[in-house]
């Protein structure tokens, strides 16, 4: 899966978890951690579960960092590294 496809799929997941934003809000540059009020620990863990399920990968606890969840772009990078 290429970067654009990964980002698109991540956006689909995020839109389901945090539905209160317009479609065009979500881009590769969208900031997540610390920037979206709803992006709390529950949302992060839900997102991780969906990522593991849909991309068939496993993330380590060490992957749960502010850097990896900073933006959609950094998250895309993490997913592609683990895939």
């Amino acid at each position: 899966m290429n970067t654009a496809q990964t980002t698109t799929q991540l956006i689909t997941i995020l839109m389901a978890i945090i539905p209160g934003y317009d479609d065009d809000f979500w881009t590769a540059d969208t900031e997540l951690f610390g920037a979206i009020a709803e992006f709390d620990s529950m949302a992060i863990v839900t997102l991780i579960g969906e990522i593991e399920d849909q991309f068939d990968i496993e993330l380590d606890d060490d992957d749960i960092s502010a850097e990896n969840f900073a933006t959609l772009s950094s998250l895309t990078e993490l997913v592609n590294e683990r895939a």
């Binding site: 951690f33 620990s41 529950m42 992060i44 863990v45 606890d61 749960i64």
Partner: peptide, 8 residues
């Protein structure tokens, strides 16, 4: 993970 993310 909830605890780890919570610490974050």
């Amino acid at each position: 993970r909830m605890a780890v993310a919570g610490n974050l």
